[in-house]
Structure formats: structure tokens, C-alpha cells
Design a protein around this nucleic acid. Structure first.
Lengths: 245, 245
DNA sequence: CGGTCACTTGATCGTCTTCAATACCAGTGG
DNA sequence: CCACTGGTATTGAAGACGATCAAGTGACCG
């Protein structure tokens, strides 16, 4: 990580004063396993940081010194082949935990697709903390199990679905993530570029663009502006996503 | 799971007498986190079972009542689309743990590709056990983290690698799994069919067969018999697998 | 022997990629 | 104000890789 591009949040910042008690991510993240009374101990280990859009704050292959917890914004996680081909393995939103890997180097890279804030912990210090808070370890296991399920779903998408099915799956998933309630008609932000979507779905930018155009002309979706998307017919999209048309 | 096709191993069986102490999987599996003295408690919960090749012993979408631990043979884990398209998300060998999912239904199916033996545990009983043995929970978390890394690698393969690169990656991985030592010249069993390999790599049977033929004619591999494979030039295969040719 | 099954090989087809041109927007500086 | 730039998105035409369709082989088995 480039030291120039990252900076700890100063004492004037809200998050700087009470890094955990009032954290935006607390309701969503694994740290909610720790009671308010013990939170100070966690806060003592946390280093809150903000980085601008485009910052690579985890680099594949580098020594894995920290755990990360996203508290604002979205990051993309990806792996690269030597010739530049890229596969985005996921998007980490508020509450997402990064760096679980047992290995001593990171298995993937992470880059901010918006200005983001995260807190980070030294691995060995957090490991010691985990021994005192088994509840947090349980939550981590739970989170890992959920990610594993999502990864298997993504393998099905990458290995067996058509471009049309991939886009439909992606949009439905993004929608349900943004709006837990299953509204039939839903609008939500789409902070990633076409290139990011393509690298997430194993397609090219052109195919993503073309397929979105088709879905739009069919009246299944609408693109009112850059970074915004509307599902006009969510039920139909879910059918397409499931391979039923 | 069909009750007809599975059967608990009787008291005459070796595994039936001491399900854990002398288990083949113990050195490789998460249960090695439990000391010999406490092993009886684990054994009391374990139900050792054997099923023949072809048995589907976990079915996607069914109530997730058990955890599983493979102790002999190999199983394939897969997800299906309504029209029959199939994606194999992994092969579970000796020591592999299944059923971590938080959800109340299984997220994937599992089928024996050889005659296999496994032990299974009721989820709620095992959960209670985990509270008394945090070391086991740590091992589970470790295992889950490793699987997550493997899943990300597989996403890179499915999303961005060519058929040739996929086969090379698969063979190198199978080899290093079978023989931890990095012999330049290595022979190992390949229990899965071409169809299984295809569904694991997101290809068709024909493409798998053709690509293996090419690799064979290039002298990179050899197929001495059905279910057996030899890497003639492992270094070259690793280059191909990494996208370097 | 006829049966099935797994695998191989060939010919053709189609989806997605590649290459290319264009449009658009924001920022910058003449 | 407008030209210039770089990044992002859209659209078109041509091409390639893998899929599909089809035939044939060999092994195993009743």
C-alpha cells in the first residue's frame, strides 16, 4: 500500500475519537459480537483510515500484515494474470471483513472504487483478541461461510451462465443487497464501471454494454443516469438470472 | 439423501468401534484440534457411514441437518441450473469438511465419485460441542479461509482463463494435492470422469478431451490408463496454468 | 453378441471477443 | 469561448474459441 495515498483519520474526525462505538459499520460487521463494555479494547487496536477512489490498499502477494474492515464506501477485490487479465472476485461494502487468509501473503488485491474508509488491525494483535472473544471468532466463521456460499454461486455464474443470465444475476443481486426488502420495482446505486462489471462477470466491456442495452430495450431495466440503475421487471430478471428463459 | 443408499457402518467395522481415534482423516481434518482425551465426546456424536459411488448424499435446497467429514474416497460438490447445466464447485477429499453454511438449507449437492466413507454430525449438537472446543472453531475458520482462497482462484480460472490454461491449472493442482512434494515428474490418480472435469472447469466434455489430447501430443502429460495421469513437464504446465504461453 | 457407457475425433455453428469508430463528459489551459 | 485531453460508454463489423451435432472406438457386461 502506498503510504502517500493513505492517511489515518485525525483526532478532529468523528471516527477518530470513538473508532468503534459509533462506527457506521458496527450494525453490519463482525465486531458487533463484542459488547459495548469491551469495545475500547478493540478500538485500541483499530487504525481508522481513509483513502481516495482508485487506491489499491491490498496488493496480492504482499505480506499479509493486517485485517481490514470496510466502514464506508465500496472496494473491489481482484486477482490478476501476468498478462493483465483480471478477475474481480467480489465487491466489499460497509461491514465487509478482508484478509482472513491463513497464508502469510494476501491472496488478492483490493482497490477503492469510491472514496472509502476502513479500519485495520495487525493480524497478530487481532489474533490475540480473538482468543478472548470467541463470539467474534464465531461471527468470523459465519461470515466466511456466507462468503463461501456466494463464491459457489459465482462459480456457477462464471462457469455455466450466458452473458444475459450473468447480467440479470448481477443486477438482481446488487438490488437485493442495496434494498433488503424485495420491492418489485427498485432503484439503486451502481458505483462500479462497465469495466469492473465485466471483470466481475467474466465478460468484456462491450458485451456488458450491449447486454445492458438489450435489457433496457426489452423494458426489464432502466438506466436513468451514470451509476444508477432501475429494475423495471424484477420478476422477469430473476427468471433470466435463474436460467429460465 | 436416499435412506436406501446409505447405511451406518456396523459394530463389526473397524471404524464402528473407534470412530475417531484411528480415523484415516484425523491427521488431515479439523477434528485434530480436539485432544485424544476429549475425542470420545466427539465420537459419541459422529455417525460413520459408507455410500457407494454415485450416491448423492447432500442435496441442494434440502434442510441442512448435518455436518459431514469425508474420511475415505472423493466426492464432487455441485450446483445445478433448472435446465440441467451443472457447475462442480470442488472435489472433497479425505479430511474435507462439508456443510458449514449458515443457511438452514444446503447450498450445494454432493455426490460420491468413488465409494466413500464419511462421518456426519447433527448441526445443533456439533454447535454445542464447538462452544466447548474453541480450538476446533479456529480450525474450522482456518479451513474456511483456505477454501475461500481456493474459490477465488477458481473464479479467476472460470472467468479469465482459456480451455488450455484451465486444464493445465487443474492438472497441476490435482498433482500437488496428491503429492505435496513438488516432483518435476509426477503420477497421480484422477478419479473423476471427463464430464466431471468439464463441469468443474466450465467446459464441455469434448473440449476437455481435445485439450488433453493436445497436451499429450505436446509431451506435457501422459495418460497411461483410465483414471491415471502423469505430468511429463510440470514446469511447462505451470507456465501454461499461469497464463504465460 | 447386442447393450451401455466413457471417451475420442471430426465438421459446423454460435456466442462472445476483438478491433475499430464514435459519442460523451469533465477537467485544463490557451 | 473553444480546442485538447483522458476516461467511460456505446455501437458496428469481423473473427476466434469453444459449443453443438454427429460418428466412431474400445471396454465392460449381461
Amino acid at each position: 500500500m502506498s503510504a502517500v495515498l493513505t492517511r489515518p483519520v485525525g483526532p478532529d474526525s468523528h471516527a477518530g475519537i470513538e473508532p468503534c462505538t459509533h462506527c457506521d459499520a458496527r450494525p453490519y460487521s463482525v465486531c458487533n459480537a463484542i459488547g459495548d463494555c469491551d469495545l475500547a479494547r478493540l478500538a485500541a487496536l483499530a487504525q481508522v483510515m481513509e483513502v481516495p477512489q482508485g487506491t489499491t490498499f491490498i496488493a496480492e502477494g504482499e505480506p499479509a500484515s493486517h485485517f481490514f474492515n470496510i466502514t464506508r464506501g465500496t472496494a473491489k477485490l481482484f486477482k490478476l494474470l501476468p498478462d493483465g487479465r483480471r478477475q474481480i472476485t467480489g465487491f466489499a461494502m460497509v461491514g465487509h471483513f478482508l484478509g482472513l487468509a491463513v497464508s502469510d501473503t494476501y491472496a488478492f488485491s483490493a482497490e477503492a472504487i469510491e472514496p472509502i474508509r476502513f479500519c485495520r488491525f495487525h493480524r497478530n494483535k487481532l489474533r490475540a483478541l480473538l482468543e478472548d472473544f470467541p463470539a467474534m471468532e464465531s461471527r468470523l466463521l459465519e461470515a466466511a461461510a456466507n462468503e463461501l456460499v456466494a463464491a459457489q454461486e459465482q462459480m456457477l455464474l462464471l462457469g455455466r451462465k450466458t452473458a444475459r443470465e450473468r447480467l440479470a444475476s448481477f443486477l438482481v443481486m446488487q438490488c437485493s443487497q442495496a434494498m433488503p426488502a424485495a420491492h418489485p420495482h427498485c432503484q439503486f446505486p451502481l458505483p462500479m464501471t462497465r469495466g469492473d462489471i465485466a471483470d466481475y462477470l467474466g465478460l468484456t466491456i462491450e458485451t456488458v454494454s450491449r447486454t445492458l442495452t438489450v435489457l433496457r430495450k426489452e423494458g426489464l431495466i432502466d438506466v436513468p443516469g451514470p451509476g444508477v440503475l432501475v429494475l423495471r421487471d424484477r420478476a422477469a430478471l430473476e427468471k433470466v438470472a435463474g436460467g429460465l428463459s
